[in-house]
Design a protein around this nucleic acid. Structure first.
Length: 107
DNA sequence: CCCATGACTGAAG
DNA sequence: TCTTCAGCCATGG
């Protein structure tokens, strides 16, 4: 298991505060791979085995839970977010602008 | 090395 | 806001 790229992604993902969310692109930029947003998603998929990675807090730039189908249940991702006081309606995170956490700004 | 895949993004209509 | 298209690039066959 190579870890260079994925490890950086996991590292940033783990820094996301509870009740906050971020985008694949924001993480990609932070680890110095601004053009590899897709790879971040790819890494998230591979992170399914790693429970310490809060993949449910990572969504696309519009705040839509595009990766929910990769969780055990279709509703798991949404419920995990709601459990952190994040309102989700029809795969869309509410108040996304307020909840958005940009590692490039916050760190 | 070439090819396909994908949890993305930005631009254009 | 939505759909479509073209870049993007790590990983695996």
């Amino acid at each position: 298991m190579e870890k260079n790229f994925f490890e950086r992604v996991y590292d940033v993902a783990r820094l996301i505060p509870e009740g906050r969310v971020t985008s694949y692109g924001a993480i990609a930029r932070y680890i110095g791979a601004a053009k590899s947003a897709r790879m971040v998603g790819y890494a998230m998929n591979a992170s399914s085995i790693d429970e310490s990675v809060p993949a449910h807090r990572v969504v696309n730039r519009k705040g839509i839970l595009t990766g929910k189908h990769h969780f055990e249940g279709i509703n798991l991702m949404q419920q995990l977010l709601e459990n952190e006081d994040v309102e989700v309606i029809d795969n869309q995170i509410q108040n996304f602008d307020t909840l958005f956490w940009d590692p490039n700004k916050e760190l």
